[in-house]
């Protein structure tokens, strides 16, 4: 169990690395459009949430702090998505 706990940040770190590489490849593949855009945004927000929850260790704090962080990602993420959808026309 102690071992698992020590490994956990490493797993998160590898996940973040993997998601970054996916983001980068999607960028390089020059794909665009609604689906790609929303996927990229979703990946971004998942990554930030991982950092906040597990690296910053907010997961263990009280609801208010987690809600502020989560709310921040949701609000910023959806406003960005809205703006991009407006751009698509």
């Amino acid at each position: 169990m102690a071992n698992n706990k020590a490994l956990f940040p490493t797993v998160i770190w590898l996940t973040l690395v993997a998601l970054t590489i996916i983001t980068f490849s999607l960028g390089e593949s020059a794909m665009s459009g609604k689906g790609v855009m929303l996927t990229l945004l979703a990946i971004t927000m998942i990554k930030s949430q991982l950092v906040a929850n597990y690296f910053m260790a907010l997961r263990k704090t009280k609801f208010l702090w987690r809600a502020i962080m989560f709310g921040y990602f949701i609000i910023v993420g959806s406003l960005i998505a809205m703006a991009y959808l407006m751009g698509l026309k």
Binding site: T44, S48, V51, M56
Partner: peptide
């Protein structure tokens, strides 16, 4: 210090795809 550094990290995590990738 750690909390501040993680903030710097996740702000870049948002900034990078937003400014460099998504189009």
């Amino acid at each position: 210090g750690a909390s501040f550094w993680h903030m710097v990290d996740f702000l870049w995590i948002i900034l990078f795809p937003l400014v460099y990738i998504i189009r």
